[in-house]
Design a protein around this nucleic acid. Sequence first.
DNA 1: AAATTATATTATGGTACCTAATTATATGGC
DNA 2: GCCATATAATTAGGTACCATAATATAATTT
Lengths: 174, 174
Amino acid sequence: MNRVLIKNIPDRECLNEAADRYPAMDPDITEVYLHFLKVGSDVLSEIYDYLGQFGISGGRMSILMQLMKEDEGAIAPSELADRCGVTPATISGLVDGLIRTDHVERIVDPNDRRVQPVRLTKTGRERMEALLPGYIDLINRLFKVLNAEERASLLLILQKLQINLENKENGNEA
Amino acid sequence: MNRVLIKNIPDRECLNEAADRYPAMDPDITEVYLHFLKVGSDVLSEIYDYLGQFGISGGRMSILMQLMKEDEGAIAPSELADRCGVTPATISGLVDGLIRTDHVERIVDPNDRRVQPVRLTKTGRERMEALLPGYIDLINRLFKVLNAEERASLLLILQKLQINLENKENGNEA
DNA sequence: AAATTATATTATGGTACCTAATTATATGGC
DNA sequence: GCCATATAATTAGGTACCATAATATAATTT
């Protein structure tokens, strides 16, 4: 599941010591960074634990969520790869798994026979409908500890971080 | 690397539609949740990209960081497993990899010959010293986009989330 | 000394990714 | 219509992370 592999974040004293050894290190920033990774990792663990009870892994869930959104019914593997941010080869493997468990099926695209769009089976849709309420409840339990103001504040901060990340990707100027 | 596999977070309209179908779903909470996972995933990607340039994976970095902290020098595998929150078997594999690349070595524990404490080699320590300044710079670049107030606010929010997560783990009352 | 407990490793297996090679199909000159 | 090229998807092969179960070894308890 690739967790962060740090169960206990170093205390302030330890961070301050490290900052003494590495002048560029800011203990405040490092502390936020470590907590951020840890909480993210723990939230993911909760999510994966829940989904695991239904035999659904993270990667498979991503595909199933995309397919649930679609009223059209089917999505091409390349489109799934694009939306999920992975290679088509990865989608192939995930879809194979979902076919083995009868969640999805490959159909024929009459317009382009290279494409084998993927869609939910009846069983797959039923299982998703069974799984989603608990999924929603879990997310609520995890985040309802924050009040509306805190959630708004967090969202703003996340958006700032996101924009910064995107600039790094594209710009890449020194 | 186990990313979140959602490149584009659904817009508000899409979230509102979903909330219509699933009464328990709160679009605000869901939006924060999705952004949180996405930013966490992207931050991790940046980190792993950087470490990858040095041939260091996430799991290996966790062990190396623990060993860097230790002035004593060596840590037992069981202790590493405990600190990292994984099984001893996982540590065995990671340590094997680090030994192959001459980052760490297993030594003899005179007090308990079952234990084979792990410590940095000279080479391993040198490589870590070479890698850390860039690692610190990267973290700074990612988080310096937040001012001190925002960082403090984020830290507080993360701590709230963390406490909530820990209660779920232990308590587990309905 | 024998039984139990503790430590670590190995064996085995699943999931999530990737790149490169391959196969099948479309398409755009010519 | 035909060939070169481009595109879609899969397969092959590889790395990493992580778990459980079985095993070997050493320590401890009785």
